[in-house]
């Protein structure tokens, strides 16, 4: 019986292959455009960068490929390593904040009434419809010295001062003048910007996992005497782990390579690896070094993904044991 099913499956699969072979025109019509696109606009440029990393600058526009490792060695200059760690730190903090903010949002959406869900999801995705440049500029308008946050704070300050005036305490408590907070052009602003831009990448995979979660598991936890908070940490978080891992990767990796957000919102001390790479290709005109940096970042990303795959396979092996 089981063998029959297997044989049947094999036959189906063969049939499918057969039909591909029988109609090669249709097959290639579907497969070719995507493959060509990937080849021409992804693998070829990537290969060029990979080769450039082994090049030497001999003139303003001329680069000789000498297969030198000097560029890779230059990447490990303490200045760049320090920059790398700061990028990792900023990306990590931003990812953690996105997770802490995204989990309640994803939970709220997955528990919302069926009718409201698409609207809430739309609200989560809505920022994607605006260009990232415009969204980041909007952050400047919010955070700058004469920005909306400081306007709001100033309003509260004035209210507080007016309230304290009859007691003669206004000067003592509130000070003479409103001092606007400098919210822009520092690492906090960069982290804020990264969280704002990449939050949907955290919310969506979390939502996808929580949506599939069997509600009776939560009821069972309550039924067995656990409170809401205990249920959240003992049941929801462990079962949402695949979504949490996906969300972390989807936020951390682009955050690690970001240059636009740190360029616009960051100060002189919040340069990230992405900015340095960008600079090598533009202002510094040192393409080989920029290429080497790009590939080091790529290898780090691969290492993170490999680590994740290894963790998952180890967990599966342990579950099977």
């Amino acid at each position: 019986m089981a063998r029959d099913i297997k044989r049947y499956r094999v036959r189906c699969w063969e049939n499918r292959l057969e039909s591909w072979r029988a109609q090669p025109a249709v097959f290639w019509a579907f497969v070719l455009p995507g493959t060509l696109w990937l080849l021409l606009f992804f693998f070829v440029p990537l290969g060029l960068i990979w080769v450039l990393a082994f090049g030497e600058r001999v003139g303003p526009v001329q680069i000789d490929i000498t297969w030198t490792f000097a560029n890779y060695l230059a990447v490990f200059d303490p200045v760049y390593v320090g920059l790398f760690w700061r990028s990792v730190w900023v990306a990590t903090v931003a990812t953690v904040i996105a997770l802490v903010m995204g989990l309640p949002v994803a939970l709220a959406v997955s528990f919302a009434p069926e009718r409201v869900k698409p609207i809430l999801l739309l609200l989560v995705i809505l920022p994607f419809w605006t260009n990232i440049l415009i969204r980041t500029y909007a952050m400047i308008a919010v955070l700058r010295t004469r920005g909306f946050v400081n306007f709001g704070l100033e309003y509260l300050w004035l209210m507080g001062k007016a309230f304290l005036l009859p007691f003669g305490l206004d000067e003592i408590v509130m000070g003479e003048r409103f001092e606007p907070l400098s919210l822009l052009y520092n690492n906090t602003a960069v982290i804020f910007g990264i969280v704002y831009v990449y939050l949907p990448f955290m919310v969506l995979p979390l939502y996808a996992t929580l949506e599939r979660l069997d509600r009776s598991l939560l009821e069972a936890s309550l039924d067995l005497g656990a409170g809401q908070i205990r249920t959240f940490f003992s049941i929801i978080v462990p079962l949402a782990k695949p979504g949490i891992v996906s969300g972390i990767i989807l936020v951390f990796i682009p955050a690690l390579g970001t240059f636009l957000i740190s360029d616009l919102l960051g100060g002189t001390d919040s340069l990230l690896l992405g900015n340095v790479i960008e600079r090598q290709f533009k202002a510094a005109n040192h393409w080989p070094l920029g290429s080497a940096m790009s590939f080091v970042l790529l290898y780090v990303t691969f290492a993170i993904l490999a680590l994740r795959a290894w963790l998952i396979s180890r967990e599966e092996a342990r579950a099977r044991a």
Partner: peptide, 11 residues
């Protein structure tokens, strides 16, 4: 305490 229809055993 309740035994759920789906059993709701924590996976």
């Amino acid at each position: 305490n309740m035994v759920f229809q789906s059993y709701a055993v924590f996976p």
